[in-house]
């Protein structure tokens, strides 16, 4: 399309391209440093932070895997992430359906209440949440982590689901209702299959947020065998002598699945983020 433009118009776009490329360089530099640091010794990271590593040996990855018990941490992160995604999808779809498609007198107020939930800064109440979790016997528990993550993600998920469900035609569920199907059957059999984009948006963004989170495991998890990947990695920082090569290798391991998913689903993820931002 741009090749059809007049050369002068092409030239007018040059500053824009330069600005974009500059920002791209800003984005790429830290990622580059992260990647090359995975293959360096701590001394090399300090002496030669920008250059290519002396050798591309996987030593740091092997150390990270063995010393940091990263396998167990990956399993923990996976359990928490999958658990949070599945439960968030279930409870949010169930809540969004009546709020967006039933004629309820209190429906709008209730939806508004959930939307306000997006704005609650729960980290400010972390001391109270900790004591509450202790009372509920949910400290040092992956289940407890899942509960908190689901509660945090519910407002956003309901918002997305409600946006997608609201615009579906009314005829969609009427036939099934005449056949005597109940609301749950209609939700899972008829509504959810046609809002697959909403399901993938909620699943992807919940997964990223939960997989990457450091704050809540830091508060709730003390048992080494229950630590998630981000918490495990940070416990190797700030010790007497931090093995930075290993820390960066571990960070790369934790980043790999998210980045792989991103490269496959880049378009959907970007459009999903956009869908979350466009209030209609």
């Amino acid at each position: 399309m741009s090749s059809a433009l007049h050369p002068a118009a092409q030239l007018a776009r040059l500053p824009g391209w330069v600005a974009l490329l500059l920002w791209t360089a800003v984005v790429v530099l830290p990622l580059y440093v992260l990647v090359v640091s995975c293959f360096k010794t701590t001394a090399e990271i300090y002496i030669n932070p920008m250059g290519l590593p002396a050798s591309w040996s996987p030593t740091n990855f092997i150390t990270a895997w063995h010393r940091a018990n990263l396998g167990q941490n990956l399993v923990n992160s996976l359990i928490v992430t999958v658990g949070a995604v599945v439960v968030t999808l279930l409870v949010s779809a169930m809540a969004a359906y009546p709020l967006s498609r039933f004629r309820l007198r209190w429906g709008t107020a209730m939806l508004g209440l959930f939307l306000v939930g997006i704005m609650l800064p729960i980290r400010l109440a972390s001391v109270e949440l900790f004591t509450l979790m202790a009372d509920l016997n949910l400290l040092d528990s992956l289940f407890g982590l899942v509960c908190v993550y689901v509660a945090i993600r519910i407002p956003f998920a309901i918002f997305i689901f409600a946006n997608f469900m609201r615009v579906l035609p009314r005829e969609l569920e009427e036939a099934a209702r005449l056949d005597g199907a109940n609301d749950l059957q209609i939700l899972f059999g008829i509504i959810l299959p046609v809002v697959m984009p909403a399901i993938s948006i909620v699943a992807i963004f919940t997964a990223i947020a939960v997989w990457n989170d450091f704050f809540f495991p830091l508060i709730f998890i003390f048992d080494n065998n229950l630590k998630t990947v981000p918490l495990a990695i940070t416990s190797f920082v700030g010790q007497f002598r931090t093995d930075w090569g290993m820390v960066f290798a571990a960070l790369a391991i934790s980043l790999a699945p998210v980045l792989a998913m991103y490269l496959v689903l880049a378009r959907q993820i970007r459009e999903g983020a956009g869908a979350g931002g466009v209030i209609t």
């Binding site: 791209t24 830290p30 997989w211 990457n212 989170d213 980043l255």
Partner: peptide
């Protein structure tokens, strides 16, 4: 794709990488 990729990078990784980028004397 490149612009949005930073959203995938956990804050702990961003923090630790930048702590190296910011090194006072010979930092990048």
């Amino acid at each position: 794709t490149i612009l949005f990729s930073t959203y995938m990078v956990p804050m702990i990784a961003v923090s630790l990488v930048f702590s190296k980028l910011y090194s006072p004397t010979e930092g990048p």
